[in-house]
């Protein structure tokens, strides 16, 4: 069962720090978002593999939209 990582805010995707297929641990930072000059790292909530990335650097993401699936 994949864990969906959702964006907490409307933001610009400043940095994507993982690729699909990467193994991540709980707490590994997946992306860094930027909104209103606030930089917000989004961490993986679980141990697993990045199954799918929905965002790319320089793109945007809305509140509640998916960032990645971790399985």
């Amino acid at each position: 069962m994949a864990e969906k990582v959702l964006s907490p805010i409307t933001a610009n995707v400043w940095k994507v720090l993982v690729k699909e297929g990467d193994r991540v641990s709980e707490g590994t930072t997946i992306v860094i978002l930027e909104s209103m000059k606030m930089e917000i790292p989004v961490d993986s909530p679980v141990n697993g593999v990045v199954k799918k990335l929905y965002v790319s650097e320089g793109g945007s993401v809305g509140e509640g939209e998916p960032i990645a699936d971790i399985e």
Binding site: K37, M38, E39, P41, V42, D43
Partner: peptide, 16 residues
């Protein structure tokens, strides 16, 4: 100018 960074869990920031 300012810069701010938020750290925490998915939906709750713990510190800025």
């Amino acid at each position: 100018g300012c810069i701010a960074e938020a750290f925490g869990e998915m939906e709750i920031a713990k510190y800025i």
